[in-house]
Each structure stands twice: as C-alpha cells, then as structure tokens.
Nucleic acid binder design. Structure first.
Lengths: 224, 224
DNA sequence: GCTTTGTACTTTGCATCCAATATACTTAGT
DNA sequence: ACTAAGTATATTGGATGCAAAGTACAAAGC
C-alpha cells in the first residue's frame, strides 16, 4: 500500500482549553491580573480541573500567565519595559528570519506575499481592521515558515504571542491614514525582499518591526 | 515592624520532578528517544502520576521533550540542524545581552568575573572538567543577569538548556590544551568587556559563542 | 476604635479511579 | 509459513476526592 500521511488529531481537551484561554487573553476578555481559578474555568468549559491545569501550565511557559505557588495563576501584567524587551529581541530574531527566508526565496512566495499585501490594501480601504490584522499575521507567519528554522519560528512566534493583546488593541485604534501606511510598509518590505539583497532586507524588516514597536509603545503610554 | 523579604517556598512536587528529569536528560541518564512513561517515573520518585504529568508538560514547553498525542512523551532527539539553529539564535541574543550588560557594568562585576576566570584557571590546571563547566555556566549567567532583561534571560537560558546535554558531554572530552584555551577565551572576553566598547564587546561574545558552536559541532559529528 | 487572634471558606496540589486508545501478542485462516 | 483479525495489555487523558495551605472575615482583647 502507498505510504499515507499519518493523521494527527492532537485534539486534547487541554489543548483546546489552552487555545481558548489564549484567545480570551488576546481579545481582552481576561484582563491582566485576573486570577485564573481552576474550578471556575473548568465549569465554564464544562470539563474537569485536570485539562485546565495542563492548559494553565502551557500558558505559564508561554509567559502569558504567572503562577504564585499555592496561591494560583494570574494573567500576566505586561510592563512597558517588557514590551521594549520583546521588541528588541524580535528585531534581532526577525533579522535572522529574513536572512534564512531569502535563501529559500521563490517567485511563488513573492506572489503569495504580494497577494496578501493586495488583500491588506483592500481591507484597509474598506476599514476592516480585523481582516487587516489577520493578513498582517499571515504575512509574517509566511516569512517565519520560509526560514525553515523550527526553533527560531518557535521562539519568535512565542514572543509575538506574549504581546498579542497589545497588538490587537493597538490595531483597533489605527486611523485610516495609519492603515494605509501600514499596508505600504508591507509593500515596501516585499519590494526589498524581491531584490534579494540580504543586508538591505534585514535592515528593512528591522525598520518594520521598530515601526510597530513605536506604534505599540505610543498606544501603551496612552493606557497609563 | 521592619519590612522583611517575603518567603517563597516554590517547592511543588512537580517542580522537583521537572528538575530531576531535566538533570537526568542533561547528564545522559535519559537518552534521546526514551519513552517517558508516567507510571514508571511516578513510581521511581514515589509520587503519583499527577506531578509527573505537570513536570513533563514543562519539559515539553522547554523543548527537551516532545509529545505525540495519546502515545506519550519522548526525550527529544536533537538534530545537528537544530544545534546550529540554537547557536545562531544564541549569537544574536548574547550580543543583545552584552549590549545591555555593559550599561550596568561596574568594577564589582569585573572583579567577580575575573574571580571566576581565575577559579576556572585553577580548575583547568587541576583537570577538573566538572568544576570548569559549572564556572563557565556561572560566568554567562552573571552576564545574563547583568543585562537586567528578564525575557531575554528567559529565552537565552532556555536555549542553553535545550543543548545542555551536548554541552556537558562535549565538556567531558576536552583536552588539557582545550581547557586552557577555554579559560583564556573567557579572560579575553572580560578584558574586552572592561574596555567598555559596546561594539567590540558584542563581537567578542559572538566569537566566543561561535567557538563553542564549533567545538560542540565537532563533538556532535563525532557522534554520528 | 483599632489590633490581633481564631475560625470558616476558598483554592491549590496530590492521589486515585475510570475510560478511551494504541500497541503487542496470539490465534485462526489461507 | 505468512497474513490478518481479534484479544489482551499497557498507557495516556480526564474526572473526582481529599488534605493542606492560603485568604478573608468575624470576634475578642486592649
């Protein structure tokens, strides 16, 4: 018989619980500092405490939640310093991503990225911030995958996940002008990538991330 | 009353189990590919499966263990590609570490590092590889801490933990000459750091990490 | 009225139990 | 003798129960 792809139904309850908790944090339904009471969460999801415990453990290791022994788990309250930290690390790592990604570059990828940018442009003119955000995520995820470096992807996506709450919130308050600038920033990035100059591409992506940092930082200071 | 330091006895069984499993992997008692059967581990440690499950979950998130749904957890078998990946990320991040560390530099730190180098020198001439390794770890941990960037420390130490098994093994086969070279490499690093030139210091630490990479890579290819 | 001790309640952490699934072994059929 | 199905066993995933630690509130003493 022909060899077929093995099916992986990784659908544990704990994975699903973790996914939902992540989303709740990202979308602001679970605010920083919230005490995550296992029993409560278990009841809401109609499961036992066990998958909830495993899920919370995952979130702890992802840095979304902190735990105080025998007291419980709390949604991590991000300081502006930590935000700066995440971005300084991301700049360094996204440079690496681009370096490796370019060595796997192809016209098909270029086309895919330009397609996404085009759809971002449409979303921007329609004022659809949600769609724009998702396309932005897709755009960077494609670059990550293209790097073919699993651990790098793991680390950089984990970093992005930590600040996802700020990303979504800041995205919701983008002005139409900012939306357009954001689209053209991605267009510019694709243009540079297509030229294939590694150093220029690395600088371009670094600028792009630093821009995002400035935007988020502005939003964050607006919170205080 | 005077304010006293709060006591944190983070001693859960799961933390202790995780610590011991980590050490067992690092020291080679749990070889790559080993199936981690919860029941067996629980019996060996005389605890129930529950803390073992939490501990294994931690190790999964640290990248030391991989899990196949409904089949179990296995000690992760590191490929040479992953080794290269970890090092390429570490180079980028250790540069950041040094950059931040230098802004918190003090004579006391310089003295502490030189003290460690001196003890490394003694350990090297005594042929005590174990002590040398621990001092090496201490040396870098001090730089990490000096950076004052919690997330950076978390990521970079997690990366080092992933390859800890190779580090200890390669350390055990160091020749006397290599031991001495290793000591002087650290001495050189301290000298450069003391001069306070950020760019030179970043390059120096990058070279240092790349050297380590070469050494480990040589050991790894020797394994095949 | 304020502080401090004592008590009731909440929540975590660990153990045990049960069900579902995957693997290994055995047996039957060709 | 080899393949294939069926069964037994091992192992994970989830639910529940219980004890210890922590928290909050109330009562008693100053």
């Amino acid at each position: 018989m022909q060899r077929l792809e093995p099916i992986k139904q990784s659908e544990n309850l704990s994975d699903e619980v973790a996914r939902r908790l992540r989303r709740a944090i990202r979308e602001g339904h679970l605010k920083p500092g919230t005490h995550l009471v296992e029993q409560d969460i278990a009841e809401q999801f109609r499961v036992s405490r066990m998958p909830v415990r495993i899920a919370i453990q995952k979130l702890i290791d992802e840095g979304l939640v902190i735990k105080e022994p025998r007291r419980g788990a709390y949604v991590h309250t991000f300081s502006s310093k930590e935000l700066d930290e995440v971005y300084s690390i991301r700049v360094a790592l996204e440079r690496l991503v681009v370096q490796y990604a370019l060595s796997n570059w192809s016209d098909a990828v270029a086309e895919e990225l330009e397609c996404i940018v085009e759809r971002m442009r449409q979303a921007a003119s329609a004022g659809d911030r949600q769609a724009g955000f998702e396309l932005d995520s897709r755009f960077h995820a494609i670059l990550w995958e293209l790097s073919q470096h699993a651990i790098l992807i793991e680390v950089v996506s984990s970093l992005r996940s930590r600040i996802s709450r700020f990303l979504t919130e800041a995205n919701d308050v983008l002005s139409p002008t900012e939306l357009n600038m954001h689209v053209e920033a991605h267009q510019h990035l694709v243009n540079v990538l297509k030229q294939g100059d590694v150093e220029r591409a690395k600088d371009a992506v670094a600028d792009h991330i630093l821009d995002a940092h400035e935007r988020i930082r502005a939003y964050y200071s607006y919170l205080d």
